[in-house]
Every structure is written in structure tokens, then in C-alpha cells.
Write a protein that binds this DNA or RNA. Sequence first.
DNA 1: CTGTATCCTTAGGGATACTG
DNA 2: CAGTATCCCTAAGGATACAG
Lengths: 136, 136
Amino acid sequence: MTHNSENFRSNCPINFVLETFGDKWTLLIVRDLMFKSKQYYGEFLKSNEKISTNILADRLQKLESSGVIKKAMDTQNKSKVLYSLTDKGKDLLPIMLEITSWSHKYDDKTNVPENFIKALSTNRASVISQTLSKLK
Amino acid sequence: MTHNSENFRSNCPINFVLETFGDKWTLLIVRDLMFKSKQYYGEFLKSNEKISTNILADRLQKLESSGVIKKAMDTQNKSKVLYSLTDKGKDLLPIMLEITSWSHKYDDKTNVPENFIKALSTNRASVISQTLSKLK
DNA sequence: CTGTATCCTTAGGGATACTG
DNA sequence: CAGTATCCCTAAGGATACAG
């Protein structure tokens, strides 16, 4: 992905991720794909944060055009579309894990399984490989 | 920080960071504090992304009330205010580093010193301690 | 220099109806 | 079920003037 003149603000790596993920919704879709094994449009709609259908469609498009996710036809059911992470999307996993750790530390309401947190601090590499192996 | 009813959407750790950092500006202030040694209002204003003064004031307030940054009077110059990261703010460093790696990998325009990237992959712990030691 | 305040415009996003 | 389309409103944010 290259910068387009529309949203280009700087050559900073922090700014670069903000151009794609600097909103309230986009990263939730990545989360659903990465940790919740969701693949279908309707499954994203059902998440707790209640994304609306027009926003979901918009973000799926943007994620696809930025190469973070890809679409495929469900071979079993032709009317269904399967969404999945590309390698670029999968590479967001370390960021997601650091976010999870930070929130777990600073938000008492954040709900993450204790054994996941423990595995993360003691055997991070295996958490990564296991998470990736579960992806569709 | 606890969730307030205003922006509460779920108990998900990913959502939790989005409630604070899910916009185009907030994380840039953290970046300036963490990597650019900026401490003054006017310095944030001068960043490449050109944040406007009302947005900057709003984000500084929100970051302070969420405990990520703190204010202090400049002892040399009473009319100046010094901003700095709290421990909670400093703990964002691993997230920032993962973001930097990802952007460096996927955006050819992203400008990060090569020796920083190399140090990050070969001696991450020392990058962390060195970055923290340079903080005001 | 460090903010506040105001005005104004645009983008984000909720609700909902509709289509294949 | 998987989206599109439309309507409408609010929040985000740019520009700029002003104040301590």
C-alpha cells in the first residue's frame, strides 16, 4: 500500500497505521477474524459493539483495498462470502497481543482469560503460533 | 480508568484501547512524547501532521484524564507547562514498537532509521530500556 | 507561549428500507 | 443471508480570533 494524497499526512510509522486503523471500528473486524474465528458478514454484525451494516461494508472494503483482508467464495454455499486475513493482516497479531496485555493491566473491566494472559507472558511464541494455526 | 456509560461498548481489550486511541490524533501525541522528546504544547502543534489547536487541547485533556499523560509546571519558566508520560503511558511502548515494525514492513514510505529497525529485531529489550531512559 | 472560544464544514455513523 | 442505498444527525475537526 502506498500513501494517497487524500489522507497522507507524514511518513511516520505511527501515522501510517492510523490512516488505516485510526477509527472506532476497523480494528474490531481484525479482532473478530483473528481471535473469534468469524468469517461471515453476519457474524461481524453480531459483535457486542454493534457495528451498523453500512459502516461494516465500508470498513470491509477499505481493509480489502489496503490488503489486510481478502474475500473468497464459500465453496459449500455459493451465496456466502468468506473473509479472512492476508499475511499482512496476520502480521498485526503482535500488535494485538500487546494491546491485549496493556488493556488487561490497566482496565479492570477488560475480560481476557487468565490462562491466555499467563501464556502470553511465559510463552509468547507459542501463543502466536497457536493463534495463527487456528485461523481459517 | 473505568468505563463510563458514554462510550462503553464492550469488555474487550481491543475495544478498550479504541475508546482512548481510536482516532487520528491521540496516538501521535504519545509518539511525540515517547520518541521525539517533545514536552510543550507548541511542540506538538509543530508536528508534520498539523494538528489544530482546539483538537490538541482536547486530546491533551482526555489523555490526562485517562491517566496516560501528566502535566507539570516548568520550574524554570512558570508560564510553561510540561507534559510527560505516566507509567501507564510508558507502558504503551511495546505497542508502539510493534506498530513501527509493521509499518516498516508494509509501507515503503515509512521512514524509520535502519539501525533502529535492526536493534528492534536483534535486541528489543535494550531498545525498550534505552527509549525509556531518554524520557523526561 | 499556552491555551479557549467560536464559527463553520465535513466526515462518521446510526436507523432503516430495500435488493439479489 | 449479504450486502446497498438513503436519510438524517451528530461529532470531529479545520481556521482563526482572542485571552492570560
